[in-house]
Design a protein around this nucleic acid. Structure first.
Lengths: 217, 217
DNA sequence: TAGATTGTTAATCGATTAACAATC
DNA sequence: TAGATTGTTAATCGATTAACAATC
C-alpha cells in the first residue's frame, strides 16, 4: 500500500481500537462511528479515522465502521491472526508472572520455552515447562520455531541476554529489564518498564500538587 | 520555574538518565558529557541537554555534568527522594508478581496494602500482607496514608476499581488492566499494558519481514 | 431528500535536531 | 590559549486537529 510513515502512537491506538471493537462485537453491536469509538478511548474522531486510513478504507460514509468487518482486518494488521512462539529468559518473579498470565496466550502469544542462567533453576518445572540452561537458547529457538523473546532478567544481565538472543534467529524482543539494551537492526525491540511508569506517576503527582511537602534525599 | 510544557517523553528519558547516572556514580565516574550520556541510551547530545534544561542548568560548559550533583537533582525532580505508600488492587498472578518485585521498593514505592474482591482471597497472607476486601479501600488508604494505587484486576473490573479509588484520597493510579480507564482530573494516571506491547512487537516484526507468510484468522 | 459520517487536505501544534555564542 | 562542552535559539520534522467535499 502507500508508504507514509505511520506514527508509532497510531499502532498503539490500533490495539486499543481492536480491543474495544472485540468487546462491542461480543455485545452484538454492528457498527460504530469514529466519534463513538474515539469517545470510549478518550480520543477525537479525526484521530480514529486518520489512524485507520493508514491501513485502508474501512469505513462507510454516513454509517460508520462495520465491526465484524473491521475486527479481523485489525487482527491481521497487528499480526494477531496467527500464533507466535515465544521464549522467556529469566525465570524470576516477573518471569513466573508472565508464565501464568493468561492474557498472552489469548492474544496468540505462547511461551514455549523458558531459560535461566542459574544452575539451581535449570530443570525445574514451571507452569508445565522445564527451565533450560541459557546455553540451549540457540538450539531450542531454532527447534521450536520461536520468533519472539521476553527478557526478564535483572538490568545487569539484560544486554548479555539480548546479545545471546541476537545470535539466534529471533525476530523480536520484548525487554522487561530496567536497562536500555541495543539489538541489531533486523531485530524488533519493545520494552515494558514497570519502575519507569511508577516514576512517571510520582512525577505527575508531584507536579499536580506542588504544595506537597517533601524532604530532600 | 519556567512554565514551558515539558514533553512527556522528556520525563521518561529523565528516568533513563537517572538510572544510567546512578550506575556510573557507583562505578566511581565523576562527570559525563551530554554526548556520552546520550550515546549510552541511544539518544543525541542535544536531546539530553534539552531535556535537562527544562528543569535547570545542571551542566558545566567544557566539563559536562557532575554526576554526584545531578543524581540527587533528578531524584528530587522525579519524586524519588521520598517514600510512597502504594495500594495494590487485584491479587492475581500479576499482582503477586508485583508484590514480590524488589525493584519497586528500591525506588521508594512500597506496597502497604492489598485488596481483592474475591471473598476466597480475603484474609490470605501474601508476601507479609493480608488481603483485604475492596470495601476497606477508602478506610485503609486514609489510615495508611496511601497516595498511589496499582490496578491489577481483569479488564472488566478495571473501571469499577478506578471509580472506587477515585472516591478515596488517592493521588495517582497505575493501571495494568488492558482497558482504557477514566479518572477525575485531579488523579494522575499511567498505564502498563503487557499485551499491547507484545502486539506492537508482532506488528513490527511483520512489517520488517513483509514476506512472512501468515494465514487469515 | 436530510442527516450522518467518512477519507483526506491544509492548518496547527508540539517535539527533535542543528548550529553556535558563551563558558570553563 | 586551545579544546571541550554547555544552554539556547532557530530550523526541521512529525503528529494531531479542523474543516469539508464526497458518499451513503
Amino acid at each position: 500500500m502507500q508508504n507514509q510513515t505511520i506514527p508509532k502512537a497510531s499502532i498503539e491506538r490500533l490495539t486499543l481500537y481492536l480491543r474495544r471493537l472485540e468487546r462491542l462485537h461480543v455485545a452484538g453491536q454492528k457498527t460504530i462511528s469514529s466519534s463513538a469509538l474515539g469517545e470510549a478511548l478518550g480520543l477525537t474522531d479525526a484521530q480514529v479515522r486518520k489512524d485507520l486510513t493508514y491501513f485502508g478504507q474501512f469505513g462507510h460514509p454516513g454509517i460508520g465502521y462495520n465491526i465484524a468487518e473491521l475486527v479481523p482486518k485489525l487482527r491481521e494488521i497487528l499480526g494477531l491472526d496467527r500464533l507466535w512462539n515465544v521464549a522467556l529468559v529469566g525465570v524470576g518473579n516477573l518471569g513466573r508472572a508472565l508464565l501464568h498470565y493468561k492474557g498472552l496466550r489469548e492474544q496468540g502469544f505462547e511461551i514455549v520455552a523458558i531459560f535461566d542462567q542459574d544452575p539451581e533453576k535449570v530443570g525445574d518445572r514451571v507452569n508445565g515447562l522445564i527451565v533450560e540452561s541459557s546455553e540451549e537458547l540457540a538450539f531450542t529457538i531454532e527447534k521450536l520455531d520461536i520468533e519472539l523473546g521476553l527478557i526478564c532478567v535483572p538490568a545487569e544481565a539484560a544486554q548479555d541476554v539480548a546479545n545471546a538472543l541476537a545470535e539466534t534467529g529471533i525476530k523480536g524482543i520484548l525487554n522487561f529489564a530496567p536497562f536500555s539494551i541495543f539489538v541489531p537492526e533486523r531485530i524488533s525491540l519493545c520494552s515494558v518498564d514497570l519502575a519507569l511508569e511508577l516514576e512517571q506517576l510520582s512525577f505527575q503527582v508531584i507536579r499536580k500538587t506542588p504544595n506537597l511537602e517533601h524532604r530532600a534525599s
